[in-house]
Amino acid sequence: MTETNREHLSSLMDGELERGARAFVLRRLSNDDELSGRWRRYHMVRACLQRELRSGADLTARVAAALGEEPVMPQPSAAARWLKPVGGAAIAASVAVFALVGINSSLLERGQPEVLAEQPGFVSQPTPFDWSFAQPLVPVSFSETTAADRQRISGYVLRHNQAAGSVGFVSYVPIVVGTRTPPVVDDGDAGVGTLTAER
C-alpha cells in the first residue's frame, strides 16, 4: 500500500478524483484485497462518525445496531411463522435475513418527468407503458436505507426466490455472492452508480 494509493482512496471517498483516475482506482479496488479492505474501513469509520454502523464486524453488533434502529421489537411468535428460528434465536433471525441476501443495494430515486410535458404535438401520446421509461433513475447513497428497510427487502427477495423457482429462471446468485460492501460514495456526483451510468 503506497502513499499514493491511500491518497487516491481518500480522494475517491471525497469525490475529488477525475474520471480516468476514478476508473483506475475502482479497477484496482476490485482486484486488490488490501486496498478494498482499507476502502471498507474508511467507509466504516465514516459510517461510525455519522453514527451509522453499516457493516457490523460480528452478529452481536449487527443485532444491537438493528435493534437500536427499530422502534418495534419483532414478536418472536409472529416472526416464527415466516422464519422458524431454532432455539430462541428469534431476534438474530430477523437480522439474519439481510445478512443472507447481502443487499449490495444501490438506491435509485426517480427524477421528474420533465420531458413529457415538452413533447411536440406530433409525437404520439405516451401510454402508461412508456411512462416508466420517461423518468430517469438517479442512484443515491445506500446509507439512506434503514436496517428495517433492508430487512424487509431481504425477506421479500428471499421469499420471491423461494416461490419463483418453479416458474422461470431465478438464480440464487444474490444469496451466494454479493455480501461485499460495495464501493458506494456518498457524494452524489462521484458515486459509482453515476460512473456506471456514464459507461
Binding site: A57, D58, L59, A99, L100, Q162, S166, S171, Y172
Partner: peptide, 18 residues
C-alpha cells in the same frame, strides 16, 4: 464471525431452471 445456517425449500437454483 456471523456463522449461520439457513434451511428450507428454495425453488431457485444457481444455474437456470425451467
Amino acid at each position: 464471525d456471523q456463522s449461520m445456517v439457513v434451511e428450507g425449500g428454495i425453488g431457485s437454483r444457481l444455474l437456470p431452471n425451467l
